[in-house]
């Protein structure tokens, strides 16, 4: 880089000539202008890019809607996956219901409600209770 070429040219304790000072001043001014002009250029480009994206959004509102829909769809699937994972973890860690063959798991459900649910299912389907196999019963929270 240009700057590294200047390194070591002078020591801080060296006395320098006015001509050197003028030369340094000229280089210094050019460097300050070039760097700030470069920042200016980048800022202008970034600004224009943002303005353009805003204009495009206004011109094609359907793009925005599609993007939002895609985002919400993604969020939905993510949430569904997370819920399923949570349910699986909860099912694995839930205690086994008393009196069962050892498979029914009750999640946020007491035994009385579970017995009622199993009886209702048996009655509704017309299947004897000993022929039904329940794996787990989970209370589903109502959405508010």
């Amino acid at each position: 880089m240009g700057i590294s070429l200047l390194s070591g040219v002078f020591k801080s304790t060296d006395k320098i000539q006015v001509v050197d000072a003028i030369l340094l001043a000229l280089i210094g001014v050019v460097i300050v202008f070039v760097i700030l002009a470069l920042i200016m250029l980048i800022v202008s480009i970034v600004g224009k890019a943002f303005d353009k994206s805003e204009v495009l959004k206004e011109k094609h509102p359907e793009w925005g809607e599609k993007l939002a829909a895609a985002k919400s769809k993604m969020m939905f699937w993510k949430k569904l996956k997370k819920d399923a994972e949570e349910a699986e973890v909860a099912a694995q860690s839930a205690p086994v219901a008393a009196g069962t063959c050892g498979e029914l798991k009750l999640i946020n459900t007491d035994e009385r409600d579970a017995a009622m649910i199993m009886a209702i299912v048996a009655d509704t389907t017309g299947t004897p209770l000993n022929e039904l196999r329940f794996k787990s019963i989970k209370r589903v929270e109502e959405e508010k």
Binding site: F10, K15, I16, Q17, A21, I22, A25, L26, G28, V29
Partner: peptide, 25 residues
């Protein structure tokens, strides 16, 4: 950027006094 011109003009002036080293100027 332009206002920094003052820095470099003073650098020349400080060196011109002959009292200071480059680092001091």
């Amino acid at each position: 950027a332009a206002a920094q011109g003052g820095i470099y003009l003073v650098l020349i002036l400080a060196v011109a006094t002959g009292m200071y080293s480059g680092g001091e100027a």
